[in-house]
Design a protein around this nucleic acid. Structure first.
Lengths: 95, 95
DNA sequence: TACCCTGTAACGTATCGGGTGTCAAAAGCA
DNA sequence: TGCTTTTGACACCCGATACGTTACAGGGTA
């Protein structure tokens, strides 16, 4: 279980892909085939990385789509875990 | 990269958790704290496993929330991969 | 000044997770 | 054989999200 608040994948994307290449949001969005607004939303944590976006990133940056999607899953899971105690769930098997 | 069409996580959930325990959809939904329809949709592939649902499953069946979420990611990714050639993406780094 | 880049807002589209309600089929029981 | 209960899938509504376009405000730079 993750203990610390993980950064949203968009932040990682900016630091690991855009900045090293000196890419502007506009230029990167154009290359990815999405609108500037869509990429901006991802970069600023307003939107998550969808499976389609993960594939776009894997093509453009020659990376693993799974890794982007897993980062997204871990990020969402961490936030969901913060409300774990609010869920009324009965254990069906012994812990 | 997955080569074969993976089953939707709901199918796995039914076979690995409900059936072994002889649980009905109604009983399982009640234990999970969701409606019958919500669980039914997941079991029949009409809905995916959300982070919240993954945590519910992890509590009820003493399993790993990550594993459920990863299954869901892999499932969505496989389907997105089927349309990879439709994406107009420019490579920004050498393959 | 003029131009580019960025973030953001508004609006429309489609999809999705979740809830309530309905209903036909299945199961249980007299 | 019937009747009642339960079950599970479906139809519809709601809120959130992913994506698009258009437009605007602010910052940096030539």
């Amino acid at each position: 279980m993750l203990m610390h608040n993980p950064p949203h994948p968009g932040e990682v994307l900016r630091e690991l892909c855009l900045e090293p290449l000196g890419l502007s949001v506009t230029a990167a969005a154009e290359a990815l085939g999405v609108s500037r607004k869509t990429l901006s939303a991802v970069l600023n944590g307003k939107a998550g990385i969808s499976p389609e976006m993960a594939i776009r990133l894997s093509i453009a940056f020659d990376t693993s789509a799974e890794s982007w999607l897993n980062q997204q899953s871990q990020y969402e899971l961490w936030h969901a875990e913060q409300h774990r105690n609010e869920l009324k769930v009965k254990k069906l098997v012994a812990a």
